[in-house]
Structures are given as C-alpha cells and as structure tokens.
C-alpha cells in the first residue's frame, strides 16, 4: 500500500517559451481516487499524456505501475486505461464492435472476448444499446462506452480526462458513483482530471490543485482547507431571534475565550471565527444568557473556497511580477 502506483518526479513539459507543466512531483497510492483539479490550460491533459508516453517530457520522469512511461509506454498502456476528454468512436461500427476491437488490440483471447464485453457493457449500463451504431450515441452514452473501453482490459489504473464534461447533472452523478463503486470493488486506482470542483469533491479521496503547470497543493479536502486558511478555519454563524445590541455587553466575555479569534456582528447574526470547533459551547452560552437561537450554521470550506483562494493568491503573484 505504501508503494505509490503513479510516481511523477520533476515532470516538466515545455512548449517553446511556455512551460505547460513545471517540475511536477506527485505520488498516487494504489486504490485511491485522485482528483487533478485546475482551470483549462493548466497542463492537466499534458501531464496525463506524459504519464501514458503519448508525449515526451522535456525533463523529469513518470513512473506508472513500475514502468517508465517515456521509455516503455507499451508496458504502461497494458495496465492503464485512459479515457480522453473528447472520446471518439468509429461511427460506422456498433458499440459492441468498437469495444471488441479495443479488446482484441489488448490481446484478449477470442473465446473470452464475448463474455467480457457483455459484462463490461452491463456494468456501464449500455447492454441494451450495444447493437446501436455509436454515431447515434449521446454524449453521456459515449462517455459510458469510453469507460467500458477502459474497463475491458482489466486495468490497474484508470485515467479519466475531464470525464464529466458535457454530461447533464444526473448523468454526472451516476457516472461518478459508478467510478467510485468500481474503484472500491476492484481496488482500482483512479486519476481524474476536471475543472469542475463539485464533481471532484464528490468522489475523490485526495485532490491536487494544479494551476499554470504547478501543483499548488494536494491532500484531502480537510487538509487542503487547513493548509490554506490556517488553524483558525472554523467559522460558526449563529442567528438569534432578536437583534444583538451594539455595543454588545457579552462581547468582552466571549473575546476572553482562548479559542475565539474574531467576532463579527450584523444585527441578529453573529459570526465567530475560532481555532477549534466550539459551536456547541457557543450555543449553550447564548441560550443560558437568554438569547433565542433560531439558526446555527457551521461553515466548512469547500473546494470552491479553496479554489477561489488559490486563484486569488495566484493573481496576486502575477500582479507583483
């Protein structure tokens, strides 16, 4: 478990004067779902292409399943299933034919192929449409067929490039649930790239934020927000029935609590920023003092805030230059 299945060391790709990927170091462990999050043009696809040996890094190495992706891409591609962002199929062939072709290219024996493709189509929910030509497929169906394509070769690692692009919300939810389920059941390692925060947040164990070719932060969402907002990352806002008078005679008493770093008051809304989660204590305190608490809201930083924050700091950096 400790041995990372994907290991990127100082991976760099330069297009002319532009560094698309800049000294990327990343380890992904077996069985985890890792989300590579970043805006368009951040270098996500380039990174993925380098992992598969589809493009050569300017410097650095990418080891996937113990093989160097640049020097022995065939070994890597045997174990890695890759779904590109705009997956295409041979329009004159049916879904099953497309799938069987990929199966044959992966050297699956003819006598297993039928059973295997039927199974995979069942898993992605396309069993009913397998004899339709792919030209008649919707975007979501193509995406599912793309996943079937990836699964038929029994990969150890799945790399999905923008898998949720252009699918409707229910489709996205089903698709992500499917990925998560597959990963958990079969112990697959999944790397998915996206610029869509909520999708990544739904399924990923760990997230890496990737902007302008650099991995700015990585970790699970809690760790990311701690890393970003410091230790005082707990915000509790409490709504009371009656407006709080200004100045508030209880404020000095609360200020004295060592956990609280900041108090903001807007009429009947109190916002406490604290080092620890003190929501329960705060509510008890206010109730004892005779306030009618009508709403308590604990603010957790989601990826949205994290993302936003990174963009802010990034644009500040740029302005300084």
């Amino acid at each position: 478990m400790k041995d990372p299945i994907i290991q990127l060391k100082g991976l760099t790709k330069q297009y002319g004067a532009v560094k698309a990927v800049d000294g990327l170091n990343l380890d992904i462990d077996k069985g985890e779902i890792f989300g590579l999050l970043g805006p368009n043009g951040a270098g996500k696809t380039t990174t993925i292409l380098m992992m598969l040996g589809l493009t050569d890094p300017t410097s650095g190495t990418a080891f996937v399943c113990g093989h160097n992706a640049t020097s022995s891409p065939i070994q890597v591609k045997k174990k890695v299933g890759y779904m590109p962002d705009s997956v295409g199929f041979y329009d004159n062939m049916t879904a099953l034919e497309n799938l069987v072709y990929i199966g044959r290219l992966n050297g699956i024996p003819e006598n297993e192929l039928k059973k295997r493709s039927a199974e995979v189509l069942e898993v992605v929910g396309l069993a009913a449409d397998q004899h339709k030509k792919t030209s008649a497929f919707s975007r979501g169906m193509k995406q599912r067929l793309g996943l079937a394509d990836v699964l038929i070769k029994n990969p150890e690692v799945i790399i999905l490039d923008e898998p949720t692009l252009g699918i409707d919300p229910t489709g996205v939810r089903d698709f992500l649930a499917l990925i998560k389920q597959l990963s958990r059941q079969q112990g697959l390692t999944v790397l998915l790239s996206s610029h869509h925060l909520h999708h990544v947040q739904q399924v990923c164990d760990r997230v890496g934020i990737f902007v302008n070719g650099q991995l700015l932060a990585q970790g699970d969402i809690g760790a990311l927000s701690a890393q970003l907002f410091g230790i005082d990352s707990h915000v509790t806002s409490i709504k009371t029935a009656q407006p709080v008078p200004q100045p508030w005679q209880l404020e000095p008493e609360l200020q004295a609590w060592e956990a609280i770093t900041q108090i903001n008051i807007h009429e009947n809304e109190l916002e406490f920023t604290s080092r620890r989660d003190i929501t329960a204590a705060l509510v008890r305190f206010l109730v004892e003092k005779g306030y009618d608490v009508i709403g308590v809201n604990q603010k957790n930083y989601g990826l949205d805030d994290i993302y936003q924050k990174y963009f802010e700091s990034n644009s500040i950096k740029k302005n300084k230059l």
């Binding site: 598969l52 589809l54 065939i74 070994q75 591609k77 045997k78 890695v80 299933g81 890759y82 590109p84 705009s86 997956v87 295409g88 199929f89 041979y90 329009d91 990929i102 290219l105 992966n106 050297g107 793309g146 394509d149 070769k153």
Partner: peptide
C-alpha cells in the same frame, strides 16, 4: 479528428 486516434494510442500497440 474523430478522437479515435487518442483512444487507439492509449492501447498497448506500437
């Protein structure tokens, strides 16, 4: 153009 080349090249073929 139809996106099948990437898919093909992601398979273990030379």
């Amino acid at each position: 153009n139809s996106g099948t080349l990437t898919r093909l090249m992601a398979q273990p073929i030379y």
